[in-house]
């Protein structure tokens, strides 16, 4: 066994990455590491090859974006298309979003699949409010994005009149491919930065969970007050520096927050 290991080690510069030999070499190196046999250059090389460094936030977002629970919620004909996403032909499970949740409290994002009538809008809003942060919303199809063909007394002209929407997917209804394109966009948004800047756009700064009132006393906690003041100050400074259009306190376009 010792001989074979030595032989494999000797082979290591020649072994192609991904080949069975390469994999075996890495396995043996990991065992050596645990034994404490790896030293100096070998140890350094092993660490460089097998350890990724990153911020916890990035790792968390990577995990979040690849394990999304959609809410079981159909509004109209787009819901039929939404059902086909889960089937084996299109299979949203490829992107880790196949577990439809029956409760908004367990769901990560909501798909507005169809026109939202003015009578349904309070219900949708309530469901969205019941979802836990971080939460996202996809507006699927023309109707929930802009009212679509229903320019009449009964239908809300665009669901983002009453709730924040992260991704609008055009189509009547959108094909599953279009939905997946939009969903992948959403995943990328999440991996980059879960805050999409809608709080600033909808003037909702200060409604973050950490900035809310103390649940028990009803008064803002000192920490939340300080955080709120910091956020306001950051927005003001950014607006002063780059003008109102360039203000980007959440770093949605930059490398991310710290």
């Amino acid at each position: 066994m010792e001989v074979k290991r030595e032989k494999l080690r000797a082979l290591s510069p020649l072994a192609e990455p991904g080949s069975p030999e390469h994999l075996r070499i890495r396995q043996l190196r990991a065992r050596d590491l645990l034994r404490g046999d790896l030293t100096d250059e070998q140890l350094e090389e092993h660490v460089q090859q097998s350890v990724f460094l990153g911020r916890l936030e990035d790792v968390l977002n990577w995990a979040r974006s690849n394990s999304m629970f959609p809410m079981t919620f159909g509004l109209a004909c787009c819901a039929i298309e939404m059902i086909s996403l889960v089937g084996s032909r299109y299979d949203i499970a490829r992107f880790g979003a196949e577990a439809m949740r029956a409760s908004p409290r367990q769901a990560d994002f909501i798909i507005l699949s169809g026109r939202v009538s003015i009578k349904m809008a309070p219900v949708v809003r309530r469901l969205y409010d019941q979802m836990l942060e971080p939460r996202w919303a996809i507006s699927m199809g023309a109707c929930s994005s802009s009212g679509g063909m229903f320019s009449n007394y009964a239908v809300v002209q665009g669901a983002d009149k009453f709730m924040p929407i992260d991704v609008h997917i055009p189509g009547c209804p959108p094909r599953p491919e279009a939905f997946f394109y939009g969903f992948n966009k959403l995943q990328r948004m999440i991996q980059n930065n879960p805050d999409q800047g809608w709080r600033r756009r909808y003037n909702a700064v200060g409604t973050e969970e950490w900035a809310r009132d103390d649940v028990i006393t009803g008064q803002p906690s000192e920490a939340s007050q300080a955080a709120y003041a910091r956020t306001r100050q950051a927005i003001a400074e950014a607006a002063e520096a780059t003008g109102p259009e360039g203000a980007d306190p959440y770093g949605t376009t930059g490398a991310g927050t710290t």
Binding site: I118, K119, S146, G147, S151, N152, Y153, A154, Q157, G158
Partner: peptide, 24 residues
């Protein structure tokens, strides 16, 4: 059928078609 707080009688002929301009 309509919400109880709705204002107006929407099937009358002089009721405006469409609520508002679609925003693009």
């Amino acid at each position: 059928l309509l919400p109880e707080v709705y204002v107006g009688w929407p099937q009358r002929r002089d009721f405006p078609i469409g609520g508002e301009e679609v925003i693009f």
